[in-house]
């Protein structure tokens, strides 16, 4: 089973919920798909036993075969190839790796070579399996790396996915195919505004979901009213406690020091099991 943990807005406690949920349930695997800013490892401190570079295929042109016909440039939607009089240039950082140019080259002058966009790492901490990705600095294309991290999904474990914030392509790449999604929010106008966007995404993807309200005692009641009106289940509330904030700041998963919350996360997990679509 795959449970993704997402939030429209960043900084609502998505990583906190993903990490503590993974630590509170049996037989879990935590995959941090926030490859731009991966944070789960800070709290898990896993022993990384495998680091693999992740590549996308980009064209390389054999100029001895090329007759500068311009077909590759014409089929490239991303302006990654420029054909000039007697010269051809490839701009690998613009390439999305679709493969059209090499396939359609009439002289078979294009082969594909790997370009690294980041690394995927896996490891363990106790019984917990862990995986995440790190996007290289200056790199714009995260979905292929997210896909690589998700390929580590262990089908016999409960996979918890830490999803990047927002509603755009990296979010979809991370959430798609989940059995359930936990949306983490805080009861502030910003939190609610972004929660509504995230709810739209999940409805579009047709994935069952519920809400965790973090720092539940700061802000106002609008988020609760919204959830009631939209019939969205509130799975858990976490109050603002300085103790939690301080543990977070030093990179400690708070259930490690406040084990009473482990029961709450386990309870939420059991609740999720009842809400997952049966095949």
């Amino acid at each position: 089973m795959i449970i993704s943990v997402a939030s429209g807005k960043g900084g609502t406690g998505k990583t906190t919920v993903a990490v503590n949920l993974a630590l509170s349930i049996p037989n879990a695997q935590l995959l941090d798909c926030d490859v731009e800013e991966p944070n789960s490892h800070i709290f898990i401190k896993p022993n990384i036993d495998n680091t693999s570079p992740v590549f996308i295929p980009v064209p390389e042109i054999d100029e001895s075969l090329c007759d500068y016909c311009g077909r590759c440039q014409e089929v490239c939607e991303y302006n990654a190839i420029a054909v000039l009089k007697g010269a051809i240039l490839v701009f690998p950082e613009l390439c999305h790796g679709c493969g059209a140019c090499s396939y359609l080259c009439p002289r078979k002058a294009i082969k594909e070579v790997n370009r690294e966009i980041g690394v995927a790492e896996t490891g363990t901490k106790g019984n917990l399996q862990f995986g995440h990705g790190r996007l290289n600095i200056g790199e714009a294309m995260s979905p292929p790396l997210i896909k690589a991290v998700r390929e580590y999904s262990n089908p016999v474990r409960t996979v918890i996915i830490d999803v990047p914030p927002g509603t755009s392509c990296p979010v979809i790449s991370s959430i798609k195919g989940s059995d359930f999604c936990v949306l983490v929010t805080e009861p502030t106008p910003f939190g609610l505004n972004d929660l509504i966007l995230a709810v739209e995404v999940l409805r579009k993807l047709d994935i069952p979901f519920g809400v965790v309200i973090n720092r539940s005692d700061l802000g106002n009641k609008d988020t609760y009213e919204y959830c009631a009106k939209e019939k969205i289940p509130i799975m858990m509330e976490i109050p603002f406690k300085k103790e939690i904030a301080v543990l977070y700041s030093t990179g400690i998963a708070f259930t490690e020091q406040m084990p009473e919350y482990k029961k709450e996360f386990l309870g939420m997990y059991k609740n999720i099991l009842t809400k997952v679509k049966k095949p």
């Binding site: 991303y78 302006n79 990654a80 420029a82 240039l89 701009f91 613009l94």
Partner: peptide, 8 residues
């Protein structure tokens, strides 16, 4: 253009 304006 989305990307590669300088190139085209």
């Amino acid at each position: 253009s989305g990307g590669g304006a300088g190139i085209i």
